[in-house]
């Protein structure tokens, strides 16, 4: 394409095109430089954030970070064990809530709801939920679970995270099922298999890696969510109750509370927690992307 420009231009009479060509070329070059600079700027912000986390967080990583619980105000040392375990519990609870609903709803949209107005509406609403502010979902779960049950609980936190994960899973499941070629389903039906069997043992199998990607992406999405947990699972500076009632400690809210606290070990732990959470999420996202690309 760069070769095409001079050859076209050369055909024109020199007197008329000289100046025009210069301004066009300048505008073109300016645009290219601006676009490249903007891209480099955005990428450098990513690396800046990662660099900051590594520089400030690595000092806080030790065996104690993973074995001791969060320290009380003014006490020495401490770790993030309860917050890490709590975060894992809440995140997997969220995924456990979201996966069956999300996969089934996505299946309905892709397999049963073709051409139906209701399915179109559901797809539209799902896309809206996909970008709905997570803080509203936290408030919603507060109103429907925390208030009626009389207190913060891990269950409410898990449900809130699940609600955030559902639209992600619905969307990817539908997209992935749509990629499965129709003849595969027809072959199944021709053998006499009812729709449910065609879906579960042919379509789902064909789209498996894509559907797993959706679940991984949902996992990455909810693992770092903070706002909805403030209204639902809150936090806990000790080991939380195994019944998950009462506050359940978790990394994001711990980071939020520790980051601007006046104790140095709290701040150090907030940075260590940030590093752990960001690296896990980025690794998850990259793995999910790999699966999609490998699957193609």
């Amino acid at each position: 394409m760069t070769l095409a420009t001079p050859s076209t231009v050369r055909a024109l009479p020199p007197a008329t095109w000289g100046r025009v060509r210069q301004s066009r070329r300048t505008a073109d070059r300016a645009m290219k430089i601006i676009a490249t600079t903007f891209t480099l700027l955005a990428i450098s912000v990513l690396f800046w954030i990662l660099g900051m986390l590594i520089v400030k967080g690595i000092g806080g990583l030790s065996v104690a970070t993973f074995t001791q619980i969060t320290p009380g105000p003014g006490s020495e040392g401490g770790g993030l064990a309860n917050a890490i375990v709590g975060s894992l519990v809440l995140t997997f609870l969220g995924i456990a809530v979201a996966t069956p609903i999300g996969v089934l709803a996505g299946t309905y949209l892709a397999e049963y709801g073709k051409g139906s107005k209701l399915a179109d509406l559901i797809r539209f609403i799902n896309d809206i939920l996909l970008s709905a502010p997570s803080i509203l979902i936290g408030l919603f779960v507060y109103v429907i679970m925390v208030q009626p049950l009389g207190g913060y609980s891990g269950w409410a936190g898990g449900v809130a995270l699940g609600i955030i994960a559902i639209p992600v899973i619905v969307r990817t499941t539908e997209d992935m099922l749509r990629l499965v070629p129709g003849p595969l389903r027809e072959a199944g039906s021709a053998l006499g298999a009812p729709p449910s069997v065609v879906i579960t043992s042919i379509t789902w199998r064909a789209a498996k890696s894509g559907m797993v990607t959706g679940i991984l992406l949902a996992l990455a999405r909810i693992a770092g969510e903070t706002a909805p947990l403030i209204f639902t699972a809150l936090n806990n500076n000790f080991w939380f109750s195994p019944s998950l009632f009462g506050g359940v400690s978790n990394l994001p809210v711990t980071i939020y509370q520790f980051a601007s606290a006046p104790y140095e070990n709290w701040q150090q732990l907030a940075w260590a927690g940030s590093l752990i959470i960001t690296v896990s999420i980025l690794v998850l996202s990259i793995i999910a992307r790999r699966i999609v690309r490998g699957g193609k």
Partner: peptide
């Protein structure tokens, strides 16, 4: 660029 979206809000 897409990973910028994966970085949690709190970070």
């Amino acid at each position: 660029i897409e990973l910028l979206a994966a970085v949690p809000s709190i970070i």
